[in-house]
Amino acid sequence: MMHMADALISPAVGGTMLATTAGVAAYSIKKLQNELDEKKIPLMGVMGAFVFAAQMINFSIPGTGSSGHLGGGMLLAILLGPYAGFLTMASILLIQALFFGDGGLLAFGCNVFNLGFYTCFIAYPFIYKWFTRKGITSKRIFAGSMASALVALQLGAFSVVLETLLSGKTELPFEKFVLLMQPIHLAIGIVEGLVTAAIITFVWRARPDILEKAANEEAFGNISMKKVLTALSIAVVVVGGLFSWFASANPDGLEWSIEKTAGTAELEAPDGIHETLSEIQSKTALLPDYDFKASENEKTAGQAENAWPAVNAGTSVSGIVGGALTLALAVFTGWVIMLIKRRKIKTTA
């Protein structure tokens, strides 16, 4: 699963998601403190480090020549429960953002939500728990891990699409983006499901007590399928409603983007896919209304150019000259400071 980067989101989207994530995190901390199990703090800390390290273990995917690795969201939810799992995911993502620029501080909320919320609060309680409600067997672990990883990644991928779209930093029709993101994350989801199942099965065989402990903690294990479906459909209605409201309120946002997809290191889409996909899309016209607007946009491309302040002959020349001067000045300033600093060190030494 990819991480959103700072550069791809707008401050509004980043801020909203940060606030949402902070709310979920605060709730999780409160829940954990009610559990009064101080043992969990070091466990969460060390497990976070484990997932961090385990993400770097590559394994070959048979028959494809490519390699995959663990994401970890589902694993954390299953082993630590939803609240602790969510917080642990958040701390991993924070360290990745700070030390590796992977994701970012502004996109932190988006990333925690995309990778932590769906796994811990949707897929785990409603899907994994449903599969294992009648006790644990290796088949149920497999089915539960697979189904929940698939759903969590689809939701996460769709979130990425929505967040990028609402930020309006890039250009790309929504359908193309969705048609690219969802299938790729189907593949990633399968890998994540397999990986999670493999490791959970191993733990269950060696130390069944660990899984039992995690399973007993949550009371909402025995939820009927009916409730699951209701919850899911409410979520769909809410998301869809928000989405269409935005789409009508902000036609600009229709220039969706796709960039993140190619950033998926695990699976790089060959060029052919784009063409096929756009063909499929033009034939099926998932959302004809948007398609129409998008083409309208192209017609008015001339106007858009005028709307761009830097683009008229006069200012663009001074823009280039000024830009070069700015860069030169910045580099020069840095160089002078370093020179002075070095001289100081020499004279004091």
Binding site: I29, I41, V46, G48, F52, A53
Partner: peptide, 19 residues
Amino acid sequence: PKIFVLQILLTYRYISVLI
């Protein structure tokens, strides 16, 4: 919350041990 901060610090500390 301090507990969350402690947990982040623990993760940071044990990343090098686990890697």
